[in-house]
């Protein structure tokens, strides 16, 4: 019986980190797309960081999946960044004619976190509570 591969989705602050460490089959790629959207909704995360540094190949199917995830997360008012594409993969993608429209790419996961934080104002730590000093100011008044 066929069982889909399981790709982890980790939540760090308000960012979902998705390390793709296997050569995904089509069913796994489709399922990953749905799981990311479900997790965005469930956790209220604002950013998705997909680490593809271990992916040895991105064909039109996986390329399309990355574009679709970026488009769908944008509709949900969140952002997707793809990190760590190998140079050989980037060259091949361009020759194939896939420019990954709408996908922000960065060199590595650190850059990705920085981009999500700086460009999109997404903080790693969710701090919904007002800082303590404001509270004490309030009491002083």
């Amino acid at each position: 019986m066929y069982t889909p591969q399981r790709i982890p989705i980790l939540k760090v602050g308000r960012v979902l980190i998705v390390p793709i460490q296997v050569d995904m089959d089509d069913a796994t790629a489709m399922q990953l797309q749905e799981r990311i959207l479900a997790e965005l909704e469930r956790t209220g995360a604002r950013g998705v960081l997909i680490d593809i540094s271990l992916l040895e190949m991105v064909d039109s199917f996986i390329g399309r999946m990355l574009s679709d995830i970026a488009a769908m997360t944008r509709i949900m008012d969140a952002r997707t960044v793809v990190a760590g594409m190998q140079p050989a993969v980037a060259i091949t993608l361009v020759e194939l004619g896939l420019e990954l429209p709408g996908v922000d790419t960065v060199l590595n996961v650190d850059e990705g976190i920085r981009l999500l934080r700086d460009e999109f104002g997404i903080r790693e730590e969710a701090s919904e509570e007002p800082p303590d000093f404001e509270l004490s100011d309030h009491w002083k008044a």
Partner: peptide
Amino acid sequence: RLTDQTRLATVASELAR
């Protein structure tokens, strides 16, 4: 070399699909 391996693997993926 690596880039050619990647090109050939990608062609295999597209045409097999």
